[in-house]
Design a protein around this nucleic acid. Structure first.
Lengths: 136, 136
DNA sequence: ATGGCACTCATACTAAAGTACTAAAATGTC
DNA sequence: GACATTTTAGTACTTTAGTATGAGTGCCAT
């Protein structure tokens, strides 16, 4: 917040300066009016783009990004979370086992634990819950 | 594309007009230079914002919204698509059957057809594919 | 060093999911 | 009305998924 105010202040100051400089330069005859107008136009054009980007970036980005806080709160271990991600990719237990160089037994154990911790009855429900919680 | 070119052309024309008008108005003495500069600054400021918003809206908005074209292209029937959505909600065949007042047999038939048409081996993979295709 | 925890794996089941095929209504189209 | 789809449903299996339980290993913190 303080940073925003400071940036704004500096910007306005710089612009007023540009304003005055161009005004007196024109009166003094050392600067053509077209150039002054073009310079002002260009500067404000980019200021508009800059400010717009600033305000948009704070309202459009938060639809994704994973929530590590919730993963901890659910007490999901590293392996369990890893398996959960593979489930969401649509892999079978066999395929996950091969991918992670483990046996299907181990994967089943992890899956069971994930379902318990996410309070899901099926892996498809686990996917839905995980997405709702923004942990995948 | 043609629309974009047209908009751009009109904008540039309008700006050149503003440019010339302000220049001659100042020379004629009917307009103070400060006002001309302020006007140009304001216009370009908003043009900057406008153009920026245009370019961003085409890169940030499309993360959602379903693609009915693809649903048709995949030849998914109404029922099959309905079942697919329930699968994505994490329901079992039994639960889907109860929800749609059908038997589990019927749901299995639909599910098998959905898997075939989406080229998926499992329902979890069907979810992943459907999301990638933006049909759910 | 030891008790706790995460990770690994196994066996033995039970329960879902998925396949293959068949077939009768229901629906919409020409 | 005839024809093509869609929707519904069934039987009979095969394959995955999921549960329960036990147990060995490695790691880390007290």
């Amino acid at each position: 917040m303080r940073k925003t105010v400071l940036t704004f202040g500096l910007l306005i100051l710089a612009l007023l300066l540009l304003f005055q400089v161009s005004k007196y330069a024109i009166i003094g005859g050392s600067l053509r009016m077209e150039y002054a107008l073009a310079a002002v136009a260009l500067v404000f054009f980019f200021v508009g783009i800059y400010l717009n980007k600033k305000s948009l970036s704070k309202k459009h980005l938060p639809p994704n990004k994973i929530d590590r806080q919730k993963i901890m709160a659910l007490e999901l271990s590293k392996r369990e979370y890893e398996v959960l991600k593979e489930i969401a990719l649509g892999l079978s237990n066999r395929e996950i086992a091969d991918k992670l160089f483990l046996t299907e037994s181990t994967i089943k154990t992890h899956v069971s634990n994930v379902l318990l911790k996410l309070n899901a009855k099926r892996r498809t429900q686990a996917i839905q819950i995980a997405k709702a919680l923004q942990i995948i």
